[in-house]
Design a protein around this nucleic acid. Structure first.
Lengths: 142, 142
DNA sequence: GCCGCTCCTGCAACTTCGTTACTTTTGCAG
DNA sequence: CTGCAAAAGTAACGAAGTTGCAGGAGCGGC
């Protein structure tokens, strides 16, 4: 659970203004063990929060390097808070994601690094995303 | 360029009926070097083709193992034809995908296998998707 | 503390992507 | 050739995300 202080600091560190919506959205993402879609974040916020503002907030967070998009095969975009080490200048998420086919949650496995691959000539990779599918810890049959 | 004969055979082999839309959709996907979204496929088809039928066709193709969804971070789903070796029973795409940040195309790098990772306890992976981002061969500055 | 510029919010309307329910047509087995 | 199940077509709907604009709030300067 990220403290309100820490949330505020993170906003300031990335050059973003302190607003109620931003603090709330960042709090939700920071406290979630898995990636959330726009709609899921909306559900966790005060019902009075404006949908459009939420999407704009996510956009600015993404541009500022506070959150990253998580790859998926569905047609909804999911976001996860970047690790503490991520800054606007060094935005790099090198961990594997795991999508549970039972609960649909997408976990950030921070401790599992993405292995490198050798590419054909003249292909230059900048970003790498690795998504595993299967049954997560919580959904395993006992 | 897949021949019409080969297209028909593929449909039959997967237990699907021969229809004009199915042959056309499969032809488009088989001839594309990169993954296509529903809208992109629609543009390459006869304008009279029904949008809903197209989506249902893609769904049945996916269920039958003719095509696979390609992971992406956007909110549109993209499809690519499975390799010849894929059958309904052994549907396995073990190759890396590459998304060009310039032309936005997603290539199937069939010759590059996805490296394995070691997962934490009690996580069981069934599927694996690996997406690279960068500049593709065609878009490289000379 | 307050002023003002700039950025953020909130509202309304809209676009795109994809789905559901229902009827009609068509592939294909017997 | 005929019947039936599966696919196509039609219409209406729903969710996700965007755009344009007016009003409000954060924050640096004074």
């Amino acid at each position: 659970m990220a403290t309100p202080d820490r949330i505020s600091q993170t906003l300031t560190r990335h050059g973003l203004r302190q607003t109620a919506v931003r603090r709330a959205v960042l709090q939700v993402l920071a406290d979630s063990a898995f990636a959330l879609s726009g709609g899921e974040i909306e559900q966790q916020l005060d019902p009075s929060t404006d949908r459009i503002t939420l999407y704009r907030t996510l956009k600015s967070f993404e541009e500022s390097g506070l959150v990253h998009r998580v790859v998926d095969t569905t047609d909804v975009v999911r976001y996860a808070a970047c690790s503490i080490e991520c800054s606007a200048h060094a935005h790099f998420d090198n961990h594997v994601h795991f999508k549970c086919t039972s609960c649909q949650h997408i976990y950030c496995l921070n401790q599992v690094a993405i292995p490198a691959v050798t590419l054909p000539d003249r292909f230059q990779a900048v970003t790498r995303d690795y998504l595993l599918g299967g049954v997560c810890r919580e959904c395993q049959p006992a």
